[in-house]
Nucleic acid binder design. Structure first.
Lengths: 225, 225
DNA sequence: CACAACGGTAACAAATCCGTAACACACGCC
DNA sequence: GGCGTGTGTTACGGATTTGTTACCGTTGTG
């Protein structure tokens, strides 16, 4: 189920949004101030964020900027009472994807949200194939020539991160952030250790890696073919 | 350059949109009716489509539906004179990504368009090409005629610095600052040594450098071509 | 031409980095 | 509790990388 995070300080509005999104079949997280909202965003990695601009503590623009700074790319729809053109453009330039002015139609908001999530679903495949492997993310299954290869939860998340970013250079920090979580205390060498075990399970010759390549001083890079 | 297709039958409006998008640096295609618009969309595969709803022949909803039916997934922003909630929702459900009601701010439209294209651009990494080399920063890879050339971390950073400042005279101090870091203790001659090894890897004839030129008493200069 | 300054480069020692085995701990299960 | 599994840290060893030095050719200058 897709998760929507709603960050809004007006409790009446928040309740209304929450009920509507829940009724539409989403898993809903809510936050009443910027601090909490930002933490939820970084921690739970929702699929979509509804973000009010006028918030206590940190304002919506700042939250948007910080989320993008962390390289999180879920769609963000901003809400505001102001209808100023300059505000809208500022929001969009900071990395928001859409902008609605209060009062707005809740149905339209739901439709826009659905449009973003539909697009997102298109992009994310759930099975990847490389060499004679089939990696089914939805079913949490890795097979090689029909034979299943068992992976521990962390190995699974690591491989998932690798295949989703195949061909890209990944730093240990990026890996730690995505696979271990931004608030984990794990050290850099833990990445190496899990790469070793992953290699031992999928590489024909772990000493001459075919898929997971080491990038000295940087991290790793996954390449199929 | 990114291509935008504008489908709009009102010639004044079309002209205005075309000029603004062209001025913003896009390659612009225009169509005055649905038939032509659909053909352009299927043929030229633009990166973004601005689509008016009220069109002769085929209306905008139909075009949107047909485009999605062909599995083309570029973002579509719909324009309409009607502000009916039900129209907006219909449009979004048919596969449009955004919807603006006339009269709208052209600046806001540009900002929304930019937001969609920015998302798309995130995925494609920056690469530099010179002679028969391809230097892919995202994948951290240098290739010459499809064959990979291995670079040590420092060689990589040095080449990255050169490529990003191509055509500019670079002093050893600038190079040391950027590649080694401001708090490094490395001496000036270290730069020379790494230039030598870089040359040995990328210059056809290291004694007569094509790319990395020595500037006596100054430093070096990288020039492609 | 002699000389000095400069850059190219081979050689080497030191530093760094990574693969991996070993260990410690936490947790769930019987 | 005892056992097996999963996870994070540490330490060792080997491989690679890096900074320096020395030597030498080149260039510019008087």
């Amino acid at each position: 189920m897709e998760t929507v995070l709603i960050i809004e300080d007006d409790s009446t509005m928040l309740r209304g949004l929450k009920d509507n999104f829940a009724y539409a079949g989403y898993n809903v997280l809510t936050a009443a101030d910027g601090e909490a909202g930002l933490n939820y965003a970084l921690d739970a990695k929702p699929d979509l964020i509804i973000l009010d601009i006028m918030l206590p503590e940190i304002n919506g623009y700042e939250i948007c900027r910080l989320i993008r700074k962390e390289k999180l790319d879920m769609p963000i729809i901003m809400l505001t009472a102001k209808g100023e053109e300059s505000d809208i453009i500022l929001g969009l330039n900071l990395g928001a994807d859409d902008y609605m002015t209060k009062p707005f139609s809740i149905k339209e908001l739901l439709a826009r949200a659905a449009a973003f999530l539909r697009r997102r679903r298109q992009d994310q495949q759930d099975t990847y194939e490389f060499a004679d492997f089939v990696f089914d993310i939805g079913a949490r299954r890795l097979t090689r020539k029909k034979r299943e290869i068992k992976l521990s939860p962390k190995e699974y998340k690591l491989l998932e991160f690798f295949v989703k970013r195949q061909g890209k250079a990944l730093t240990r920090d990026e890996i730690l952030n995505d696979v271990w979580g931004y608030n984990s205390f794990a050290g850099h060498r833990s990445v190496d250790r899990f790469v070793t075990t992953l290699r031992s399970k999928i590489e024909p010759d772990p000493h001459n890696p075919t898929f997971i390549h080491t990038l000295r001083e940087i991290g790793y890079k996954f390449e199929p073919l």
